[in-house]
Amino acid sequence: MKFFVIAVLAILPCVTACKGNKSVETDWQKVIASYKDDGKAVNYHELAKLNLALAETGRLAEDVFKYTQAGSAGLIPEWNRTNEVGTVLGDVYWSMGHVAYAQRMYFEALVVGENERDPYLLTRLVQTNLVLGAYRVAEKYISILENDGFDCSRYKPLLYDDSAVDSDPELGPKRRCVPIKDHISLEEGLEEDLKVIIRQNPSYRNAVDYLGVLYLLECNMDGFRGFLDEFYGTEALPKLPKAFAEAACMLSQLESGYWKKVGVDKRMWNDYRDFKTRIETRLSLDKYKGTFWYYILRANNQ
């Protein structure tokens, strides 16, 4: 069976402040390769970093269930007022295009950390402030980074130049995610905030992937169905990635033939029927480890 593959494979450039040759960029492939899946997924912080790496490499909605998952806390860990989790949360919100909340978490992480001049967090704050047009704050952080020996030539030319930020390949897409009309962050839940981002910037893949995966990790099939109803077939979601297609098969239990409506491959549909038969006949489900079906079965049995 040929599964849908997300076309967007571009690895987003990351933090680029450098001190000499010492880069503070994140090697997402290395994060994925070094992740140790112990089958328990009790370390939400590490799991969130893995899922972030999948998102940043365009694989989240394809590969999320290849790894043992643990609900939404493994996607967006609970804020425990530590530098470590604050940094991960900042990266997660930044990745999904929630710039204001990313900035909030990066700042919290900086403030609570022992190094008030943490170059990674200061660089992230340069990025968020550039995107939000707070150029004087960005300039302050750039000045501090430069005084500490970091090269900020990547960002300095963007100061006070809206069109340069708009056309920047890294920051421009983030800026297009910032809602034109202000609202209270997370007031109606992260899902609603992500919908606002997707409606405004439908080409921003990570928001779509995070939203769909968030529904699936929470086993929120009604929410997921609403998500497909609104976005499937639009620029935001022209085709379903693997995890979404698997979930769409399950939705066909409530609406016959739904899988066809959302373009699920027949081979996947047959696999889903086989999966259900195996449950009924108590056959091994091992071949379906790595599917949403297996995840939700396990989640419902816990």
Binding site: H98, A100, Y101, R104, I184, S185, L186, D193
Partner: peptide, 12 residues
């Protein structure tokens, strides 16, 4: 307190 998404005031 809450955080704005867009308002430059950042937080209320």
């Amino acid at each position: 307190q809450f955080f704005h998404t867009t308002n430059p005031n950042r937080i209320e």
